[in-house]
Design a protein around this nucleic acid. Structure first.
Lengths: 232, 232
DNA sequence: TTCTAATGTAATTGG
DNA sequence: CCAATTACATTAGT
């Protein structure tokens, strides 16, 4: 069943054996690992894996002495123990990247919601301001002609930090910027089949949960970084 | 140098050879790969890698015919070609995860700036509203006693969507929520030594560039998702 | 059933 | 030690 290639390449293999000696692949298992499937040259037994995992749990980078002891207990070469821990650390790290990604994405989604809320609140505040201004102007318009109170300048009531928002009355947006969303949506397409960890059903990468802004983001990166509103 | 274990396990190895046949590991290299380092059983030559990469560039999942042709050209087994492409795709995908992470983090940072700007603009708008309201009240206070205009209700000027923001006048924040930032900062600790790609100097993971909100986020996740302001 | 893509794992090499 | 590779195994899906 799985001996086809061996037969095809038997001659070449023998040449190699004579030239270079034997692979390290086949050192361990013949005696210690016959119990299960007889094949399975590589692959440590479940027992061995369990012990290794338990040890890894308590110390992912054990001393040589510990590794030697493990080798004796499990019937493996110290070299194999060392390699197992190296590979195990590498696997852990690779998984960690995905975990990091998911955590960051959750943060992003939460922040996205916050941002959306802020934008709506902003719009609401602008509407209120607009109405208050209309109210004020209307009342001033009702004053007698030539009244001293006609020279009240609404803009003058605010310090420089507060004038910027007035720009937004009426029109939705001065600067158009949806760079954030473009980035994110592009990414979403790319990793459709990314292997998620620990029972994730893939909903985290579905486009519905991504930032669902409309395209009315009012700042782009350059203006964001320079506190534009302080220049008024 | 690497023949120690062979000596120790020579007998076992021979038993295994007899029982299971030979590894495919050592099929190719003896003749085709002698030129460079003499040993180096595994590891394809630079020439072979170059050709494989070129082919991978144009098609990461070539037909069997193409693989057969490549095998002939490069002096490798078709099996090795197939495996190389499999592993190459796996590597590409692993890299993609890191790329995705970096792209997402950039989006996060940009969105974070936007959010911060929105919050400041919000504060500015609230301040303006406060002053306009004071202005209105002051003018009303100057009206003669018993004037009809005293019954103007400022709150009644706004529709339900706009009343919520009035709650924020004066006090910075009703609901305290910095969950987003907690998530992100925790992650930052976890992946200090993550291997970044393509000349990244690690600054992307330093805490300075992470969202630098103060803890005055005005919404928590639950209230964000339910559009709280529409309930007023 | 066979084939293959995707994933996991043991081992090697080089830095 | 670590990162990158190579080869192989296993599993799922078609």
């Amino acid at each position: 069943m799985f001996a086809k290639q061996e037969q095809l390449q038997a001659a070449a293999v023998k040449v190699e054996l004579g030239l270079l000696g034997l692979d390290l692949d086949m050192i361990q298992h013949p005696i210690t690992n016959v119990k299960s499937h007889s094949k399975n040259k590589r692959r440590f037994s479940d027992e061995q894996i369990r012990s290794l995992e338990v040890m890894f749990e308590s110390d992912s980078r054990p001393e040589s002495v510990i590794k030697q002891q493990l080798a004796n207990e499990l019937g493996l070469q110290p070299r194999q123990i060392a390699i197992w821990f190296q590979n195990r650390r590498a696997r852990t790290k690779a998984k960690q990247i995905e975990r990091d990604y998911n955590v960051l994405k959750e943060s992003y989604d939460a922040l996205s919601s916050t941002c959306e809320s802020l934008k709506r609140e902003n719009q609401s505040l602008r509407n209120q301001l607009q109405k208050l201004k209309s109210q004020l102007e209307m009342e001033h318009g009702n004053q007698p002609y030539g009244s001293n109170r006609a020279d009240v300048n609404i803009g003058a009531m605010f310090d420089t930090n507060e004038k910027a928002a007035l720009l937004f009355e009426g029109n939705d947006c001065l600067l158009s910027c949806d760079d954030n969303n473009r980035n994110v949506e592009r990414r979403d397409e790319e990793r459709v089949v990314l292997n998620m960890i620990e029972g994730t059903d893939g909903s985290l990468t579905s486009s519905e949960k991504w930032c669902s802004f409309e395209s009315d983001c009012f700042l782009d990166e350059s203006s964001c970084s320079s506190n534009w509103w302080e220049y008024w």
